[in-house]
Computed example of a mutant assay.
Amino acid sequence: MDDKDLQILQLVQSNARLTADALSAEVGLSPPAVQKRLKKLRDTGVIEREIAVLSPGELGRDMTVIVQVVLERENRMYLDAFKRTMRDAPAVQQCYYTTGEADFILVVVVRNIAEYEEFTQQYFFDQSNVSRFTSSVVMDRVKVSLDII
C-alpha cells in the first residue's frame, strides 16, 4: 500500500459514493487506475464493507446505550455462543470482546427504555451465562465515525 492508496482510502471512508472520476481528480491518477486500486483494496480485505450511516433519530431509534457485559464462564464455547448471539441481535450496532472489567462492550440502539428492557430480558436475564451488565445511556452523539485514517 502506498500514499495513493491511503489517499483513496481516506476519501472513500468519508464518502463511499465518490466516483472513480472524482477520486482520480483528488489523487492524481486516472479513473481506471483508481478502479484497479479500489478493487485490490476490496479483494484484500482492506475495505471490509461500504455502508450508509443512518440517523437513528430519523428512524425512531432515539436511545443509544453503551453496555458492559460480564460473563459467568469464559471458555471458548460460551464466548463463541455470546458472540454469535450478539452478531444476530438487531439492536446491537457494535460488539467488542474486551480486556478489563467487562468481557464485552456493546453499543445498542433502541426506540425507548421499554424496548431496551425487552432487550435486556432476552439477551441478558434469559441467558444463563451473563453474570452481570452495566448500562450507560448516551446523552449526546458527540462523534460517530469508523474512520481510521
Rank of each mutant, 00 (worst) to 15 (best):
D80H: 04
A114G: 11
V34K: 12
L79N: 12
V53A: 06
L38F: 06
G100V: 00
A20R: 06
N15F: 12
A102G: 14
L71C: 08
R132Q: 05
I105N: 11
L11D: 01
T120L: 03
R37T: 04
L106N: 12
R73P: 12
E48V: 14
D140P: 08
V92D: 06
D80R: 10
A25R: 07
E101I: 09
E50L: 11
I113A: 15
S136A: 10
F124K: 04
E117Y: 03
R87H: 07
F104S: 03
I51T: 14
A16Q: 13
P32V: 11
K83C: 07
V144Y: 08
L54A: 08
E118R: 13
D21Y: 05
V110E: 01
I149T: 07
R49Y: 08
I51L: 15
I149W: 05
T19C: 06
P31H: 13
E72L: 14
F82P: 11
S128Y: 08
T64V: 03
Q93P: 00
V107P: 00
G60S: 10
E50S: 12
M86G: 09
S131I: 00
M77Y: 09
V69C: 09
V142Y: 10
L106W: 13
M86H: 04
S14Q: 15
V46P: 01
A89E: 05
R49E: 06
S24K: 05
V69H: 08
P90M: 03
V109R: 05
F124T: 02
V70G: 01
N129D: 04
R141K: 03
V144M: 06
